[in-house]
Deep mutational scan, measured.
Amino acid sequence: LVRYRTISKIPQITLNFVDLKGDPFLASPTSDREIIAPKIKERTHNVTEKVTQVLSLGADVLPEYKLQAPRIHRWTILHYSPFKAVWDWLILLLVIYTAVFTPYSAAFLLKETEEGPPATECGYACQPLAVVDLIVDIMFIVDILINFRTTYVNANEEVVSHPGRIAVHYFKGWFLIDMVAAIPFDLLIFGSGSEELIGLLKTARLLRLVRVARKLDRYSEYGAAVLFLLMCTFALIAHWLACIWYAIGNMEQPHMDSRIGWLHNLGDQIGKPYNSSGLGGPSIKDKYVTALYFTFSSLTSVGFGNVSPNTNSEKIFSICVMLIGSLMYASIFGNVSAIIQRLYSGTARYHTQMLRVREFIRFHQIPNPLRQRLEEYFQHAWSYTNGIDMNAVLKGFPECLQADICLHLNRSLLQHCKPFRGATKGCLRALAMKFKTTHAPPGDTLVHAGDLLTALYFISRGSIEILRGDVVVAILGKNDIFGEPLNLYARPGKSNGDVRALTYCDLHKIHR
């Protein structure tokens, strides 16, 4: 019993810090008490220290592992850092350059016999395009090294910054494609005289377009951006097909006994025919423009016929181009109408809503002055909100995010209106959640004399007048207030005048 009563005193000691020596009952000389009392004092002292730490809000209350900052290894790049964003855009520009100039170089340097010394005699450094290609190869190699040090988000939505895990993730992902696209074939085969082989191998750079397509997928929600990307894709495919079309004609031209190829026909049409040795002929500019003209006309199913396939190889390629053109029509131009419709969806919704308003007016036989006010209010409210119901949009977000959005939407009023000066951010967040926005066209009466005042109004834009009878008592403008002081009276009061809008007004109100 003594032991039980001794232990039962522990909660009292913990909360009230009572010393055991003052209790005459606990001072009985028993061996059990002498053993338990020192333990009680020690526990009391420890609990006292913990309570003191909690009340003082000291940093040592938290466990040590929670006080440590997340460790980022040296030379690790955050995937959302500004440097990584700028670097990704730079790589994107280099990939676009590669997609345009690599097929052009591979096709127009394929057994090209233009006048001038061969590239091997001039030297590697004197070729501007080769120098640019070398810079692109170096940048792609540097990009691989950067990807080995860039964080990523795993399946659990955690940012991984450990170098080993980053390397394994990159090896399992895009490393092989990036490595093949970054191989400097110019340096590996330079001086061997195989410019045709170098041009063909350099087309491996186009593998990076797969990554670019995935990154550009984030802009699919913007109709104008999608339309622009589709047109660029169409032009890029036409450019690639033009390079292939020229390569076919250029390879067949020296081996044909009869002059029936499209390059021969082009030379005869523009007065620059090929001679018996295969030299001469149109310039590279004429060849490229004509090839691009043929691919565009074939892809769009126009086909004027002034550039036509004559050999079997050219006919087979033309059939493939027609098939590609039909697929592009289905996948690209078939979506253009939907994209344009999405661009004008706001206008369509406006006309639909206006039609419903006019049908309501016609069905209920609203008189002319009231009908005009109804239409003007709808037009003004639509121009202010673009038909978007803010309350319906915010309803799907958590309250903390709703408060931040409301604070942002009402920031101008909260910053410049005098009653809100000096208020804490928590108070402003709470008030912003209570605001209701209303609009009024010129001549609209917001409050009639004798109406119950259940709200306090803040003028965000425009001006109003307060009338008693036919006498203008006051004219209020931006950041002015009218209405009933909230919670100042037990019952809502009545208006002693009319409140009429002089201009288009936007008002925020808080109800009782």
Rank of each mutant, 00 (worst) to 15 (best):
Y219T: 05
G278Y: 01
P163V: 06
I96H: 01
E114C: 04
A130L: 01
R74Y: 05
T347C: 04
D286V: 01
I77N: 01
N312A: 01
D217R: 10
L90A: 09
Q415R: 07
G278V: 01
H351P: 03
S308K: 01
K111Y: 09
I138W: 14
V100M: 01
P309Q: 01
G164K: 13
V131W: 02
C417P: 03
A381H: 15
T424D: 12
R371E: 02
L134N: 01
A449T: 15
V210N: 09
P103T: 04
K111R: 06
C243V: 01
N391A: 15
K272E: 01
A181D: 01
C243G: 01
P273C: 01
E221C: 08
S161H: 12
H79K: 01
S301L: 10
N312G: 01
T150D: 14
F140K: 01
P419D: 05
E121S: 14
M433D: 01
L394C: 03
A330E: 01
Q365K: 12
F296P: 01
L374W: 03
L236V: 04
F378N: 05
S297H: 01
I405R: 02
P273Y: 01
G346L: 03
R358D: 01
K202T: 01
A106C: 01
W240E: 01
E157R: 14
E64I: 10
N250G: 03
D143S: 01
T233I: 13
L446Y: 02
F296E: 01
W174M: 10
R362Y: 01
K425N: 05
T295R: 01
S298Y: 04
L92A: 03
P441Y: 04
M251Y: 13
F363H: 11
D286I: 01
F228C: 13
G193S: 10
V307Q: 01
H439R: 11
R218N: 04
V393W: 08
Y293N: 01
C122L: 01
Y80F: 06
P398K: 01
F420G: 02
I189N: 13
N154H: 14
K285F: 09
L93Y: 01
F108L: 01
A242Q: 01
I144H: 01
A99W: 01
L94V: 10
C232K: 01
